[in-house]
Design a protein around this nucleic acid. Structure first.
Lengths: 244, 244, 244, 244
DNA sequence: AATGAATGAGCTTTCATTCAT
DNA sequence: AATGAATGAAAGCTCATTCAT
């Protein structure tokens, strides 16, 4: 258990999420946080271990000793770094936040010459990939968010952020006459985001069989585009049978 | 040894779901079930109480004594009727199964003269209403389903059942040239079902603010119809820009 | 469960053991005892059931409901007849007392013309048979006797009684010069009784394999006779042919 | 991670009995065992306490908290060292195993110049002493052995071992013409072992009155020797040909 | 920084027993 | 006489957490 070399930067830096939702976590960081390199490494190992354990057993079933042991530590060593299970979950969640919001920008990138359709397809793939990978832990986070204020804040923020960006994007398309004007951008994004995320969670889990990933990407993209009644710009009038 | 007198219909009927997923629950019913009117009432009260408590605190946080007390009973009285928390959750879930599958038929009812669009709108409303109402407990069930085989069986069955019916319906529409033929019926239904259910769960919870219900129904329906590229039948040929 | 015809006389009569060791049991009999024929039958069925259950599961593992159910009764019906598990065990034990002391008389029967050796062989067989049959329940009784005063009294009385009779017999043999005079009659009987009883319990349980029964009888008898250095009378030396 | 420092020899040595019957106990030792001196002491105290409590109250009546409290610990501290009551009983039993098998060798020691008679007398004393001392706990062990596989294995092994050794010894005596050839060595040993052990248990318990110890040793020895029809070697010829 | 020992709160579960019917 | 419902006491066990080293 000695190795675990790079102190994953993501965890070693105080997570840079917009609103800082970490009363206790922050205290920790300022007061109790690891002062030595070795400490930082151990801490990172714990976060990693926590994620794995939560994914495997869920939050409630996960024991602090499970986490500690997987990190090659004693039960009680855990308390050097975190105050509680909730505490470490917050850290796990913060790290995740980064990962998941990565690809979204593509859709909105104004410098891109891609058609909306292409952008959506690209974004879809990226997002589904991310969710397929992180579905388990997101599920955990979401579950906990229902009973833990801090986690809820983090989760909401993440979700709302995503929806907001998408909503903007849809609005633009509507303004340019490229999307069904009768759709409410926010609600639509919400619904479609839910669809995307949950579908990934539920039917794309790698070891849970489900569908072929590429086929799924294609189908979800099509549904998405259909739903928006998306038209490609500048082409005088698309006929709808080439939608793919 | 009277022949297990009429139990209160709502909660106590042995749920008539396709596959019977109730090893212990069934035993209970046959062997240990309440034999007196009073017992049946108590049992029903317990199921009711359990649902409420689970909704409030989630499954793991819920204590058996919470349930018992809410039903006006002692802790140990609980064990007259159920073997465990899981056991009573199964009962709660079974009851719910009924409720939720109620409105689906409308979509498929062949005797109806309504257009597909109308049917979908109707089904959507019914379904969203049901889910809005039962979202909390469904969430609980779904959570537990990840770690409990029996609950998973029940939940899967419920979900799969729903998807299958919808898929059939979509296939018919496709065959009649009324829906986008490029969509895979099963995957599409899955995705759209996920969207509907989860949107309801997440954004329509009564006390959780969110959107205006009627507006939401309208939007979700529109998205749904758009996604399918649904055309109304018998009209010689619709041009697709008036889809609204 | 209706049959169970003859109210086994042994249980229906207040057991006729020397000292009456049944404070509560007696109360029951006088105060609460079954007044109707049906009651007496049920009571007998309970005693029978108790014996069976105790044999199967031991005293501590046995639940009152096990007993009641085996007697075709409800848990709570048990309390019409007995105050507790201990209470019913006392009854079981009392019944047993009779059975087990049955064959002993043969050894002492003065009218018999058999040689001591023959008498011992006969007594041995009878006793081993009885113990083989009742070893399980005796074991239970003995176990309980360690923690329950009343049961202990009953058990001791039974055992002491047996030892005393045997000791008398040995003493006579010694006086007639037919047994090793260096043996202390009481201690010897005790030791040999222990041997007999326990050997039966431990190695002759019917379903527990062990030895062939007849061979065992023969061997134990031989050991017994050897141990006493028993000589047959009527050989030149001794003239007292009145073995009694 | 120190190498499991020297545990208090009496209770803590991994018992060196022939077959290792300690699935969980062994795990414990390797994985969970006390790693500090203090821990080892506590563990030893627990084993000691357990023995005492079991002797006083019997296994079923003994509460884990009784044991813990007697060792000056909390209820839950117990679970640092043992998984269950059964678990600690196994340890108690293993320790006992040593003690009880100590003196047997004397009988068989070929270098000894003592006569068989003398050897038996010596062995008898040792064994009776041991049993007198440990009768209570052996009783507990035996009781539990009826319902616990592991304890049964340990107990059986102990008993069988003993019987086997004695049987060999008897066989030798028979071959040398020093013991009644009509006796079956195994059955005889079994019976005589039962006699010895149980007599000690039943009649020699120190605080339970009974007989004078030395007298008892003498008597049991005599019975034993009689039973075998033991002759001293080298004495020309015993004339008692009426042994059968 | 890290560990092992120890604690205490709390939960599930089992059962003998009582009560109303 | 018999039942089902209900209770209360107690047990076993788990775990997060603290403490001394």
């Amino acid at each position: 258990m000695e190795p675990a070399p790079q102190p994953s930067p993501a965890t070693a830096t105080p997570p840079t999420i917009g609103v800082d939702v970490r009363p206790r976590a922050q205290q920790r960081w300022d007061d109790d946080g690891p002062r030595s390199r070795r400490g930082a490494e151990t801490r990172a190992r714990l976060v990693e271990a926590a994620k794995a354990v939560f994914e495997e057993k869920g939050f409630h079933e996960a024991r602090i000793s499970d986490v500690a042991e997987r990190a090659g530590l004693t039960h009680s060593a855990f308390y050097h770094y975190f105050d509680s299970k909730e505490d470490i979950l917050l850290e796990v969640a913060a790290v995740l936040d980064h990962t998941l919001n990565a690809g979204v920008d593509i859709i909105l990138d104004p410098s891109s010459t891609a058609t909306p359709r292409e952008r959506i397809a690209a974004a879809m793939r990226i997002r589904l990939e991310a969710h397929r990978k992180e579905a388990r832990i997101m599920n955990v986070i979401e579950q906990v968010s229902r009973h833990n204020e801090q986690v809820r804040a983090l989760w909401t923020q993440f979700y709302k952020q995503h929806v907001k960006e998408m909503a903007n994007s849809i609005e633009q398309l509507q303004r340019r006459g490229l999307a069904d004007p009768a759709l409410d951008p926010v609600m639509t994004t919400d619904a479609l985001a839910v669809m995307t995320i949950r579908f990934a969670e539920q039917s794309l889990l790698q070891d849970d069989a489900g569908y072929d990933f590429d086929a799924a990407v294609e189908q979800i993209t099509r549904i998405y585009i259909n739903a928006l009644q998306l038209r490609d710009p500048r082409k005088p009038r698309r006929r709808r049978d080439d939608t793919g």
